[in-house]
Nucleic acid binder design. Structure first.
Length: 889
RNA sequence: GGGCGUUUAGCUCAGUUGGUAGAGCGUCUCCCUUACAAGGAGAGGGUCGGGGGUUCAAGUCCCUCAACGCCCACCA
């Protein structure tokens, strides 16, 4: 297709498909571990295999891609490593749902068959979301794609588990955990959400046993308050505050659990708040984390009365009529029974926070069970230090506090999950003796059986920066113990670990970022990345979180179809503030990026269509006109700020700067001025060279944000083979010093246009203008340029100042326009008076400063500036006065 | 209970070391001038949430109050 046939509307769809294929075919995304160039690397936050691309990914992937493309162009050997997460619970849920539809359960299949089935599903979907990322223009290296359950990652998981265990940092124990009765698994603290709900506080009377062994009812009663009456059969004590005079005498006596009749001691513990409820608290160690601690302090064995489904146990502690009841039904019946037997004294409304499973919103049941934990404190210490001493920086900085606060109060991490899909815990039990061995392989499959639990999904993602890169060869580089896989990939680890930047949302700082830091430091001795760039979350136009259930999601692929990928990327990028504010979006916002892409397209079309006869030589510095120098200066400044902003992760500012430079400076001013230069034979060639140069460099600057359209145009410019592999511009030190003069020209033109508009003189009417310069300094370099504007602005220039004329003042010069035709005299007079008022107000406020001696001595340059402005105002006022009297003539 | 964020033009938001406020969209006026009507030119619009303080000078620094949002903790 010839340049002249390029469509006037940019065809994003066709261009993007073609260009992405060009990059893939040219293998431009693939990193070379043997390169001598300095490295820049990132790992993708692995999306869940069950995930579907949403706006959050679009933003996260776009930002990473911008960095990858920038550093690739800036001379770094760049690796952006993609992959996906096996997402334990989520994936298992999907497959179990399929099974249910077939009338089966996972237990019908058995573990082995179920896993086969899940692998089948996974293999089918594993890469779907990364394939979708192609539409985003993602330049990650698919030859290095990883999956958290694949060979290398699994090997690393086992290695890490065994080493932590041997170091005493992984332990197994019976503790209270957050149990999800629906998922049938323990979940970690961070996977538990709390929601405030209305509930009740029940006050129940527990009879006291008589002092001298008197029978039930003989010794009065103690009244406790609880939100969970159904757990009463698991009570092991009643606790009161040791300083609470109400109960002082009761400490050490014995109370009797209503309905079941078991005897429990009354103990004293500081944990109890005298002022809450009745000041007496029932202690149920098996079903409440705080009670568990109290129980431990007082050596009271927990009694478990709810099972893993959330039903009352059929045990001796629970009266038979409640056996097997669901926890809520049990509560109802127990309360009825208490009421009937007069043990229930009062019911108060009470709001409290209820823990819920993040994944299925089922109310969490704190449950006593055998689980595996990571001892976090020793691991947290170096992870705190790495952030405090600056080896790891958070951008924006405020997230550092957030991270440190959490780390400094870290609690042990429950890592076992009662699922089948995931990394099975590498612990083996002897079939007869029960003896436990923790090892990477089963020591003797005949006699040992592996622990049936799997690891929390975040355990493997915590290793992601190094498990994906061939970690496993020991520090001395010896193959001893390392798998073949690790050996093969070790060069990646050497070249690209630690990674440079991690890009993610603040919602997974605790889940993921913190764990990568602890694990990275523990196992590689190095922080896994030096900068954590935290961006905001995408929200809908009302500021609500996007979710499928609310139906307020926007599909990135649909938006790309409608507006184009580069448009989507540009819009998203422009909304990224340095502070990482959440981003509110609606469909229409992407018109911003689309319009910009179209502007780029059409301006480029103009340049391309006007390059006939141009050569490959650089522009002639000596022959540059004022606008040439100006646009080159502006380009140079834009290069400087773009690089600086890239270093500082001010990505949104880059987008705004480039938008402004391209649209306002290049299109609206330079190209318009260049049109008249091209018409002059003597200036044509050099102008073409400048146009070509500026477009070339602008495409380079914009490429990280808008990769497809820039690649397309750059290739049409025929200055190189592939923009993706071209150099990122470096700024020149020397300035061409044209800004001030050009501003003057702009002032003249604006003044003129303003006059036309306000006097209602159409651009089709030719105007004569006269410029009254205050001194020759202005005149010499600019006269020519004003003349050159003649065609564009439809003016003639020069002559004598007639009587009736309008004028505008620019930096001491006056543009005078004779008013031969008709104008609206009153309207013009009113306009001028309004201007006078404005000027007077400004002068008033400036005068105060001017007379301020300390301002004059503290900031002489600023004072001088102010003084100059006051002079300018006086000139303008004079001009307006003159105009007014001339109009009145 | 502790911490963080936000409050600037009709709407959505920028505003890096303190120096008389900017953008996009929307509004009004004019223009289909062969790069672009997804465009061009011009205009209007803000006592920067309230109050106090520091300073010659505060959207910007300090204190305080208010509203909204988020995170952490989880007194039964």
């Amino acid at each position: 297709m010839s340049i002249k046939d390029l469509p006037t509307v940019y065809d994003a769809r066709a261009t993007e498909e073609k260009i992405y294929k060009f990059w893939e075919d040219g293998r431009y995304f693939e990193a070379d571990a043997s390169s001598k160039k300095p490295s820049y690397s990132m790992v993708i936050p692995p999306p869940n295999v069950t995930g579907v691309l949403h706006m959050g990914h679009a933003l996260d992937e776009t930002l990473q891609d911008i960095l990858a493309r920038y550093y690739r162009m800036a001379g770094f050997e760049t690796l952006w490593l993609p992959g996906t997460d096996h997402a334990g619970i989520a994936t298992q849920n999907v497959v179990e749902k399929q099974l249910r539809e077939e009338g089966l359960s996972r237990c019908d299949l058995g573990r082995e068959k179920f896993l086969e089935r899940t692998w089948e599903w996974t293999n089918e979907h594993k890469s779907a979301i990364l394939d979708q990322c192609k539409r985003l223009g993602a330049s990650f290296d698919r030859t290095r794609e990883r999956f958290t359950l694949d060979e290398g990652c699994s090997e690393a998981v086992k290695e890490v588990f065994v080493r932590l265990y041997e170091k005493g940092l992984i332990y197994k124990g019976t503790y209270i955990v957050n149990w999800c009765p629906r998922c049938q698994s323990a979940i970690s603290d961070v996977e538990t959400d709390y929601e405030t709900k209305g509930g009740h506080l029940w006050e129940i009377s527990y009879p006291l046993k008589g002092e001298n062994g008197a029978s039930i009812g003989g010794g009065g009663a103690i009244i406790i308050a609880t939100t969970r009456p159904e757990t009463m059969f698991g009570d092991v004590a009643i606790a009161v505050n040791p300083d609470d005079f109400k109960y002082k005498d009761l400490i050490g006596r014995t109370a009797i659990i209503p309905l079941s009749g078991r005897e429990i001691p009354i103990i004293a513990d500081d944990y109890v708040d005298k002022n809450f409820g009745t000041g007496a608290l029932k202690i149920t160690p098996a079903h409440d984390p705080n009670d568990f601690e109290v129980g431990k302090r007082h050596n009271l064995a927990p009694i478990k009365i709810l099972d893993e489904q959330g039903r009352m146990c059929a045990c001796g502690e629970v009266p038979p009529e409640f056996h097997g009841l669901d926890r809520y039904e049990a509560r109802k019946q127990i309360v009825d029974s208490l009421k009937y037997k007069n043990f229930l004294l009062r019911i108060k409304d009470h709001e409290h926070n209820i823990g819920q499973c993040q994944r299925c919103s089922t109310t969490i049941e704190p449950l006593l069970s055998d689980q595996w934990f990571v001892k976090m404190e020793p691991l947290a210490k170096p992870a705190i230090a790495a952030v405090k001493d600056g080896r790891i920086t958070f951008v924006p900085e405020r997230w550092e506090k957030n991270y440190l606060g959490w780390m400094e109060n870290i609690r042990d991490w429950c890592i076992s999950r009662q699922l089948w899909w995931g990394h099975q815990i590498p612990a083996y039990y002897h079939n007869q003796t029960g003896e436990m061995v923790v090892a990477k392989e089963n020591p003797d499959p005949q006699n040992y059986t592996q622990d049936s639990d799997v690891l929390d999904t975040w355990f493997s993602s915590g290793l992601w920066p190094f498990s994906t890169m061939g970690w496993g060869v020991n520090e001395k580089g010896s193959p001893n113990g390392a798998t073949e896989w690790a050996m093969k990939n070790a060069p990646d680890f050497k070249k690209f670990y630690p990674t440079t930047t991690l890009v993610t949302g603040f919602d997974i700082i605790f889940f993921w970022v913190a764990r990568m830091i602890t694990m990275g430091l523990e196992f590689t001795g190095k922080a896994p990345f030096s900068t954590v760039y935290i961006h905001g979350l995408i929200r809908d136009e009302k500021g609500q979180k996007m979710s499928k259930s609310k139906g307020n999601t926007l599909d990135p692929v649909v938006l790309i179809d409608k507006y184009g990928c580069d448009a989507l990327r540009f819009t998203l990028t422009s909304l990224c503030t340095y502070g990482g504010q959440d981003i509110k979006i609606s469909d229409e916002r992407f018109e911003y990026g689309r319009n910009f892409a179209n502007k780029i397209w059409n301006a480029s079309r103009y340049v391309l269509m006007n390059l006939d006869g141009v050569d490959d030589k650089p522009f002639d510095l000596a022959a540059l006109t004022l606008p040439d120098k100006w646009i080159l200066d502006r380009l140079n400044k834009t290069i400087t700020t773009t690089r600086k902003n890239m270093d500082e992760f001010r990505i949104g500012e880059i987008a705004h700067d480039l938008y402004h430079f391209f649209w306002d400076d290049f299109c609206d001013w330079y190209i318009e001025l260049a049109k008249s230069q091209i018409a002059e034979e003597g200036l044509k060639l050099n102008t073409q060279r400048v146009l070509k140069h500026v477009l070339d460099y602008t495409m380079r600057l914009l490429h990280p944000i808008m990769p497809h359209i820039t690649e397309e145009i750059w290739q049409l410019l025929s200055v190189g083979e592939a923009l993706i592999a071209a150099d990122f511009p470096k700024s020149e030190e020397k300035e061409l010093d044209a800004l001030a003069d050009m501003e003057f020209v702009f002032g003249i033109v604006r003044g003129l246009r303003n006059l036309r508009q306000s006097l209602n003189i159409s651009t089709s009417v030719k105007l004569n203008i006269i410029i009254d310069y205050p001194s020759a300094d202005y005149f010499v370099p600019l006269e020519m340029y004003i003349k050159r504007l003649a065609k564009v602005e439809n003016i003639t220039y020069g002559g004598k100042v007639p009587k009736q004329s309008a004028s505008a003042v620019v930096e001491g010069s006056k543009i005078i326009v004779p008013l031969a035709g008709l104008i609206d005299l009153d309207a013009e007079l009113a306009r001028q008076h309004k201007k006078l008022e404005k000027l007077a107000a400004e002068k008033g406020s400036l005068a105060g400063r001017l007379n301020n001696e300390s301002f004059k001595s503290n900031k002489p340059d600023l004072w001088e500036q102010t003084r100059a402005r006051v002079e300018e105002i006086a000139l303008q006022e004079n001009a307006i006065d003159e105009l007014i009297s001339s109009l009145k003539d």
